[in-house]
Protein backbone atom coordinates (compact mmCIF):
# COMPACT_ATOMS: atom_id res chain seq x y z
CA UNK A 1 0.00 0.00 0.00
CA UNK A 2 1.16 3.50 -0.86
CA UNK A 3 0.02 6.43 1.27
CA UNK A 4 0.46 9.89 -0.22
CA UNK A 5 0.30 12.37 2.67
CA UNK A 6 -2.16 15.05 1.59
CA UNK A 7 -1.73 17.74 4.21
CA UNK A 8 0.58 20.21 2.44
CA UNK A 9 -2.11 21.58 0.18
CA UNK A 10 -2.64 25.30 -0.31
CA UNK A 11 -6.42 24.92 -0.46
CA UNK A 12 -6.18 24.30 3.30
CA UNK A 13 -6.10 27.71 4.88
CA UNK A 14 -3.33 27.15 7.50
CA UNK A 15 -1.10 25.85 4.70
CA UNK A 16 -1.85 28.84 2.48
CA UNK A 17 -0.81 31.07 5.38
CA UNK A 18 2.35 29.09 6.09
CA UNK A 19 3.33 29.23 2.42
CA UNK A 20 2.59 32.91 2.26
CA UNK A 21 4.81 33.53 5.28
CA UNK A 22 7.43 31.06 3.97
CA UNK A 23 7.10 29.30 7.32
CA UNK A 24 9.77 26.72 6.72
CA UNK A 25 9.71 25.18 10.19
CA UNK A 26 5.95 24.56 10.16
CA UNK A 27 5.90 22.96 6.72
CA UNK A 28 8.98 20.82 7.38
CA UNK A 29 7.48 19.61 10.62
CA UNK A 30 4.22 18.71 8.90
CA UNK A 31 6.13 16.74 6.26
CA UNK A 32 8.13 14.90 8.94
CA UNK A 33 5.09 14.06 11.00
CA UNK A 34 3.34 12.64 7.95
CA UNK A 35 6.31 10.43 7.11
CA UNK A 36 6.63 9.27 10.72
CA UNK A 37 2.93 8.40 10.66
CA UNK A 38 3.41 6.20 7.60
CA UNK A 39 3.23 8.37 4.48
CA UNK A 40 5.37 7.00 1.65
CA UNK A 41 5.10 10.08 -0.52
CA UNK A 42 4.36 13.69 0.43
CA UNK A 43 2.00 15.71 -1.73
CA UNK A 44 2.99 19.35 -2.26
CA UNK A 45 0.43 21.80 -3.62
CA UNK A 46 0.77 25.57 -3.81
CA UNK A 47 -1.67 26.20 -6.65
CA UNK A 48 -3.33 29.04 -4.78
CA UNK A 49 -0.41 31.31 -5.70
CA UNK A 50 -1.32 31.43 -9.41
CA UNK A 51 1.39 33.38 -11.33
CA UNK A 52 3.80 32.93 -8.45
CA UNK A 53 3.11 29.20 -8.23
CA UNK A 54 6.32 28.06 -9.99
CA UNK A 55 8.44 30.20 -7.68
CA UNK A 56 6.66 28.95 -4.55
CA UNK A 57 6.85 25.37 -5.82
CA UNK A 58 10.61 25.58 -6.23
CA UNK A 59 10.98 26.82 -2.68
CA UNK A 60 8.53 24.26 -1.30
CA UNK A 61 10.11 21.25 -3.00
CA UNK A 62 13.52 22.42 -1.79
CA UNK A 63 12.61 22.76 1.88
CA UNK A 64 10.48 19.62 2.07
CA UNK A 65 13.25 17.53 0.53
CA UNK A 66 15.59 18.87 3.18
CA UNK A 67 13.17 17.56 5.80
CA UNK A 68 12.21 14.11 4.52
CA UNK A 69 13.71 11.33 2.42
CA UNK A 70 10.58 10.18 0.60
CA UNK A 71 9.57 11.26 -2.92
CA UNK A 72 7.28 14.24 -3.29
CA UNK A 73 4.09 14.33 -5.28
CA UNK A 74 4.07 17.54 -7.32
CA UNK A 75 0.41 18.49 -7.26
CA UNK A 76 -0.53 21.06 -9.89
CA UNK A 77 -2.27 21.38 -13.24
CA UNK A 78 0.02 24.29 -14.08
CA UNK A 79 2.66 23.08 -16.52
CA UNK A 80 5.18 25.73 -15.55
CA UNK A 81 4.90 24.86 -11.87
CA UNK A 82 5.06 21.16 -12.67
CA UNK A 83 8.22 21.61 -14.70
CA UNK A 84 9.90 23.65 -11.96
CA UNK A 85 8.82 21.12 -9.32
CA UNK A 86 10.14 18.18 -11.32
CA UNK A 87 13.38 19.87 -12.32
CA UNK A 88 14.39 20.79 -8.78
CA UNK A 89 13.22 17.52 -7.22
CA UNK A 90 16.09 15.22 -6.27
CA UNK A 91 15.39 11.63 -7.27
CA UNK A 92 12.18 10.50 -8.88
CA UNK A 93 9.00 12.39 -8.06
CA UNK A 94 5.33 11.64 -8.51
CA UNK A 95 3.08 13.95 -10.50
CA UNK A 96 -0.52 14.75 -9.67
CA UNK A 97 -1.84 14.75 -12.25
CA UNK A 98 -2.37 14.00 -15.88
CA UNK A 99 -5.78 13.09 -17.31
CA UNK A 100 -7.38 12.05 -20.57
CA UNK A 101 -8.35 15.66 -21.28
CA UNK A 102 -6.65 16.59 -24.54
CA UNK A 103 -5.10 19.85 -23.37
CA UNK A 104 -3.79 18.46 -20.08
CA UNK A 105 -2.50 15.31 -21.76
CA UNK A 106 -0.62 17.23 -24.44
CA UNK A 107 0.85 19.71 -21.98
CA UNK A 108 1.96 17.19 -19.38
CA UNK A 109 3.17 14.36 -21.60
CA UNK A 110 6.49 16.01 -22.55
CA UNK A 111 7.27 16.38 -18.82
CA UNK A 112 6.35 12.76 -18.23
CA UNK A 113 8.72 11.72 -21.02
CA UNK A 114 11.51 13.93 -19.77
CA UNK A 115 11.40 13.16 -16.03
CA UNK A 116 9.80 9.67 -16.01
CA UNK A 117 7.98 10.28 -12.70
CA UNK A 118 5.39 8.12 -11.02
CA UNK A 119 2.14 9.37 -12.52
CA UNK A 120 -1.28 9.93 -10.99
CA UNK A 121 -3.77 9.88 -13.88
CA UNK A 122 -7.39 10.94 -13.50
CA UNK A 123 -9.99 8.79 -15.25
CA UNK A 124 -11.62 11.73 -16.99
CA UNK A 125 -11.44 13.14 -20.50
CA UNK A 126 -12.91 15.97 -22.56
CA UNK A 127 -16.44 14.72 -21.88
CA UNK A 128 -16.03 15.76 -18.22
CA UNK A 129 -16.46 13.97 -14.92
CA UNK A 130 -17.05 10.24 -15.41
CA UNK A 131 -20.56 9.04 -14.66
CA UNK A 132 -20.13 5.29 -14.86
CA UNK A 133 -17.67 2.42 -14.62
CA UNK A 134 -17.58 2.35 -18.44
CA UNK A 135 -16.65 6.04 -18.67
CA UNK A 136 -13.68 5.44 -16.39
CA UNK A 137 -12.52 2.30 -18.18
CA UNK A 138 -12.72 4.04 -21.53
CA UNK A 139 -10.36 6.73 -20.30
CA UNK A 140 -8.04 4.20 -18.64
CA UNK A 141 -7.81 2.30 -21.93
CA UNK A 142 -6.43 5.44 -23.48
CA UNK A 143 -4.21 6.61 -20.64
CA UNK A 144 -2.44 3.38 -19.69
CA UNK A 145 -1.11 2.49 -23.16
CA UNK A 146 -0.32 6.18 -23.74
CA UNK A 147 1.81 6.41 -20.60
CA UNK A 148 3.50 3.08 -21.27
CA UNK A 149 4.40 4.37 -24.73
CA UNK A 150 5.82 7.48 -23.09
CA UNK A 151 8.16 5.24 -21.11
CA UNK A 152 6.29 4.86 -17.81
CA UNK A 153 6.07 1.24 -16.69
CA UNK A 154 2.62 0.08 -15.57
CA UNK A 155 3.75 -0.20 -11.96
CA UNK A 156 4.47 3.54 -11.89
CA UNK A 157 0.96 4.47 -13.05
CA UNK A 158 -1.64 5.37 -10.44
CA UNK A 159 -5.17 5.61 -11.85
CA UNK A 160 -7.61 7.77 -9.93
CA UNK A 161 -11.21 6.70 -10.62
CA UNK A 162 -12.50 10.04 -9.19
CA UNK A 163 -14.86 9.78 -6.27
CA UNK A 164 -18.04 11.81 -6.16
CA UNK A 165 -20.06 12.57 -3.03
CA UNK A 166 -22.41 9.79 -2.02
CA UNK A 167 -24.70 12.45 -0.54
CA UNK A 168 -25.42 13.65 -4.04
CA UNK A 169 -25.52 10.35 -5.87
CA UNK A 170 -26.26 7.15 -3.97
CA UNK A 171 -24.28 5.02 -6.42
CA UNK A 172 -21.15 7.19 -6.28
CA UNK A 173 -19.15 4.94 -3.94
CA UNK A 174 -20.21 1.68 -5.57
CA UNK A 175 -19.16 3.03 -8.97
CA UNK A 176 -15.65 3.59 -7.65
CA UNK A 177 -15.47 0.13 -6.07
CA UNK A 178 -16.61 -1.53 -9.28
CA UNK A 179 -14.20 0.57 -11.32
CA UNK A 180 -11.36 -0.46 -9.00
CA UNK A 181 -12.17 -4.15 -9.47
CA UNK A 182 -12.40 -3.75 -13.23
CA UNK A 183 -9.13 -1.79 -13.46
CA UNK A 184 -7.24 -4.29 -11.30
CA UNK A 185 -8.60 -7.14 -13.40
CA UNK A 186 -7.53 -5.54 -16.63
CA UNK A 187 -4.28 -3.90 -15.49
CA UNK A 188 -3.02 -5.90 -12.50
CA UNK A 189 0.26 -3.99 -12.28
CA UNK A 190 -1.27 -0.54 -12.45
CA UNK A 191 -2.10 1.06 -9.10
CA UNK A 192 -5.51 2.44 -8.27
CA UNK A 193 -5.39 5.54 -6.08
CA UNK A 194 -7.84 8.01 -4.65
CA UNK A 195 -8.43 10.82 -2.29
CA UNK A 196 -11.09 9.51 0.05
CA UNK A 197 -12.65 12.58 1.51
CA UNK A 198 -14.77 13.68 -1.44
CA UNK A 199 -17.08 10.72 -0.80
CA UNK A 200 -18.44 12.29 2.37
CA UNK A 201 -18.97 15.85 1.15
CA UNK A 202 -22.06 17.47 2.66
CA UNK A 203 -22.63 14.78 5.29
CA UNK A 204 -22.16 14.78 9.05
CA UNK A 205 -19.19 13.18 10.88
CA UNK A 206 -17.35 12.80 7.59
CA UNK A 207 -14.39 10.87 8.93
CA UNK A 208 -16.55 7.86 9.76
CA UNK A 209 -17.72 7.66 6.14
CA UNK A 210 -14.17 8.17 4.88
CA UNK A 211 -12.88 5.35 7.06
CA UNK A 212 -15.67 2.93 6.15
CA UNK A 213 -15.09 3.69 2.50
CA UNK A 214 -11.33 3.21 2.87
CA UNK A 215 -11.88 -0.35 4.08
CA UNK A 216 -14.25 -1.07 1.20
CA UNK A 217 -11.74 0.36 -1.29
CA UNK A 218 -8.95 -1.85 0.04
CA UNK A 219 -11.19 -4.88 -0.37
CA UNK A 220 -11.96 -3.87 -3.96
CA UNK A 221 -8.24 -3.75 -4.73
CA UNK A 222 -7.33 -0.12 -4.31
CA UNK A 223 -3.72 -0.05 -3.18
CA UNK A 224 -2.87 3.66 -2.87
CA UNK A 225 -4.50 6.55 -1.10
CA UNK A 226 -4.05 10.28 -0.99
CA UNK A 227 -4.98 10.64 2.64
CA UNK A 228 -4.27 12.20 6.02
CA UNK A 229 -1.69 9.91 7.64
CA UNK A 230 -2.14 11.74 10.93
CA UNK A 231 -5.62 10.19 11.16
CA UNK A 232 -4.49 7.25 13.29
CA UNK A 233 -7.81 5.45 13.06
CA UNK A 234 -7.71 5.57 9.30
CA UNK A 235 -4.12 4.31 9.24
CA UNK A 236 -5.02 1.51 11.65
CA UNK A 237 -7.87 0.47 9.39
CA UNK A 238 -5.56 0.37 6.37
CA UNK A 239 -3.29 -2.11 8.15
CA UNK A 240 -6.27 -4.14 9.34
CA UNK A 241 -7.96 -4.19 5.95
CA UNK A 242 -4.78 -5.26 4.13
CA UNK A 243 -4.35 -8.11 6.59
CA UNK A 244 -7.98 -9.16 6.23
CA UNK A 245 -7.93 -9.30 2.44
CA UNK A 246 -4.74 -11.39 2.46
CA UNK A 247 -2.33 -8.76 1.23
CA UNK A 248 -0.26 -8.89 4.42
CA UNK A 249 1.36 -12.30 4.68
CA UNK A 250 1.04 -13.77 8.16
CA UNK A 251 -0.32 -10.36 9.18
CA UNK A 252 3.26 -9.29 9.85
CA UNK A 253 2.83 -5.68 8.80
CA UNK A 254 -0.19 -5.40 11.04
CA UNK A 255 1.70 -6.90 13.97
CA UNK A 256 4.71 -4.71 13.36
CA UNK A 257 2.54 -1.60 13.17
CA UNK A 258 0.89 -2.64 16.40
CA UNK A 259 4.28 -2.98 18.13
CA UNK A 260 5.14 0.48 16.90
CA UNK A 261 2.00 1.81 18.54
CA UNK A 262 0.39 2.58 15.19
CA UNK A 263 -2.73 0.49 15.65
CA UNK A 264 -5.30 2.26 17.76
CA UNK A 265 -8.68 0.87 18.76
CA UNK A 266 -10.19 4.02 20.18
Amino acid sequence: MVIVGELINSSRKPIAQALEARDEAYLKDLAKRQVEAGAHIIDVNCAIFMEKEPEVMEWLVGIIQEAVDVPLCIDTPNVAAMEVGLSCHKGRAMINSISGETKRWEEMLPLVKKYKPMVVALCMDDSGMPNSVEDRLRVADKIVPGLVEAGIPEEDIYLDPLIKPVGVSSSAAIEVLETTRALKEKYPKVHVISGLSNVSHGLPVRRVLNRAFAVMCVEAGMDSFIADPLDRHLMSLFFAAEALVGRDKNCLKYIKASRAGKIVAE
Binding site: P165, G167, G202, P204
Partner: peptide, 10 residues
Protein backbone atom coordinates in the same frame (compact mmCIF):
# COMPACT_ATOMS: atom_id res chain seq x y z
CA UNK B 1 -26.43 25.35 11.59
CA UNK B 2 -25.29 21.89 10.45
CA UNK B 3 -28.64 20.45 11.43
CA UNK B 4 -29.51 19.48 7.86
CA UNK B 5 -27.15 17.96 5.31
CA UNK B 6 -26.66 18.07 1.57
CA UNK B 7 -28.85 15.08 0.58
CA UNK B 8 -31.72 16.45 2.68
CA UNK B 9 -31.31 19.95 1.25
CA UNK B 10 -31.38 18.54 -2.27
Amino acid sequence: KNEMFVPEVL
